[in-house]
Write a protein that binds this DNA or RNA. Structure first.
Lengths: 205, 205, 205, 205
DNA sequence: TATGAATGAGCATTCATTCAT
DNA sequence: CATGAATGAATGCTCATTCAT
């Protein structure tokens, strides 16, 4: 049974382990990460690892949760602002903040996404989809005229999938044929074209 | 001239192993596949496996290659037709053929994509991107007016990434919020909106 | 003079640990008991465990000793009475008191014997043999005519072994083919037959 | 999954592992035996161990089964003879053959019983009880007058328990107070006294 | 060529014991 | 005295790979 970390020291150890997990994944390349590696990086013994986490899986879960938390806290503070932005600015801001998140902590997440393609892809990306979906919902409520555009759900699904995977692919690509900024503008063009066309059709009807 | 029986056998054994690899991955769920499983399914001994493949990695490589070949031979025969189609019809045809490929052989690839999310994601999808890029190039050469639309490379990159990942995500999702056909039409809308807008801008300039 | 509170506390803690040891063994079933479990049940920390006992082995030793003490204090008070009883009554009384001891404290010892079959068998049973041997000696001294019966030592050894293991086996057996009372009477028959025969031979000689 | 040993070599490896198991248990004293130890003694690698046995438990099971087989084949060949023997000769023969079995193969079973007191006691002894019960049944059918003696089931239970544990205790005792032969004669006396008394009572009634 | 028994490094996990606080 | 976080050796078990037949 995992002891519940109550004390300050314990909490920091838990964080150190999660931290070590990300570093290990980032460093590991495609080979799977061992508990020993994580313990070594965290500067503790294997035994201690199991004082704080039931098993390896639990560490991965905590990492995914930490990632989600980071994604949320990347968006949360600017949420009121984002909802008032025009769509192109919204996307641009989002893509930039995402890049910042990927590059924070010595590119931790960038490296992890690169290697996690081979491993916990879904566990990492599903929460992002969820958060993005929330954001879209907020945005639609703040911009009700968009609701009149058809296929709201379908287009949300597609835009979110597209956006996330464009980023993932770009991050994973060792020599991307276009720059991140070019990609950002492309995504904006794509979305804006649709929104404009949809609103025209909406008016004319 | 008669085919050398030894070679013929070798080729069929190699294919049997690759086949077995897909079946094993499809059946395995999330647990990793062992060489023993592959050998058993292929109906040969582990020892023989290593007669035909240097190691497990080589089998995965061959599987990815086989997948690419299948993707190519899905597109190749209709290539002349595709190039003459309007963009929406092109995408619709493509998405349908993709679905057929995923469902062929008792949904082999569908199952593999689902589980390979956790494993050889890139190895499988990079070739698809490559093939799609080729197709786009063909299409552009057959429809040179599209070339005048700006950001050809950027938008190709984005549309291909989007299209592939939309399919992957849809396949992986146990309960997708929209149907495959809705998604198909959504992707078409997205692309068409952009192309229309781009051509308008092009005209006006 | 007041008892030194430190000592008193120590003694009660030691007892609590031994107590906890029995409870842990009784509860554990066939899985081995950990020091953590014992400490938890005793309501102290693992660290404290090692304040009072050198190691796990020492706890087991203390448990065995406690068991012996309990066996002794089960017999001691009735010793004068027992020595004056006829042999059959002696055995009957003994077997009943044994059953009572096994069932005391929520069947603590019964459960322990059941699981300890797999573990500290000897450590638990040797003391019992010793105590029983003492009892037999007392009995012989009180009934000197029995001394004339041959093979006193041999028969003591056999009767004690038999008696103890009959009880142990009966306790361990989830579905014993005979009842405890039937077994008791059987053991009495067995012993009495021998004693009668021995005394006849003795007389005749 | 454990491969089923079909070939001669495989069978001998299985036996070698079981053999090694006994040697390991005999040598181990009170410390638990590891798979590594068994593999080393058997002269194979840990990996091979698991080719032949699902897990450690399975090895223990096989050992217990082997022990039972040995006990049976100790009795089986003399079964027709035993049934025609007077009870005292039957017991004497049995006890002697038991001693021989314990001392065979460099005292393998003697050592194992000594240390297994702490471990797989029941798993080893239950089969013996079973076999002994069978023998008693055979004996009773060959000597139907004994059936008339009361408490057949009770006395069988007691005599068998007594006999087995007397041997076990004697084997376990580093300095037994009586010799094996003395013990044998004592057990015979005990049983014979009962049988004689029972038959007298039977006649008189 | 084909086999499959054999290998053994490597993994996740446990737990008696220690020691800084 | 008490604590419980930390330790790390040790365990059961797996599986990619080899090689004698």
């Amino acid at each position: 049974m995992t002891r519940k970390p109550r004390q300050a020291r314990s909490i920091s150890t838990v964080n150190a382990i999660i931290e070590a997990g990300f570093i290990a994944v980032a460093d590991a390349g495609s080979t799977p990460v061992t508990t020993r590696q994580i313990a070594d990086i965290a500067g503790i013994s294997v035994g201690s690892l199991y004082e704080y986490f039931k098993n390896k899986e639990a560490i991965y879960d905590a990492m995914a949760e930490k990632f989600m938390t980071d994604v949320i806290s990347m968006i949360q503070p600017v949420l009121p602002v984002l909802a008032r932005l025009p769509a192109d600015e919204l996307i641009r801001t989002l893509m930039h903040r995402f890049r910042d998140l990927l590059d924070a902590n010595n590119q931790r997440y960038r490296k992890c996404v690169r290697t996690s393609i081979h491993a916990q892809f879904h566990q990492y990306l599903q929460p992002v989809s969820r958060v993005m979906m929330d954001l879209v919902m907020h945005y639609l409520m703040a911009n009700p005229k968009l609701m009149r555009a058809g296929k709201v759900q379908t287009m949300s699904y597609i835009f979110i999938s597209s956006g996330i995977y464009c980023v993932v692919r770009h991050v994973s690509d060792p020599a991307p044929p276009i720059s991140y900024d070019e990609m950002t503008e492309g995504v904006i063009d794509m979305v804006m074209s649709y929104l404009e066309k949809a609103s025209i059709e909406d008016y004319s009807s």
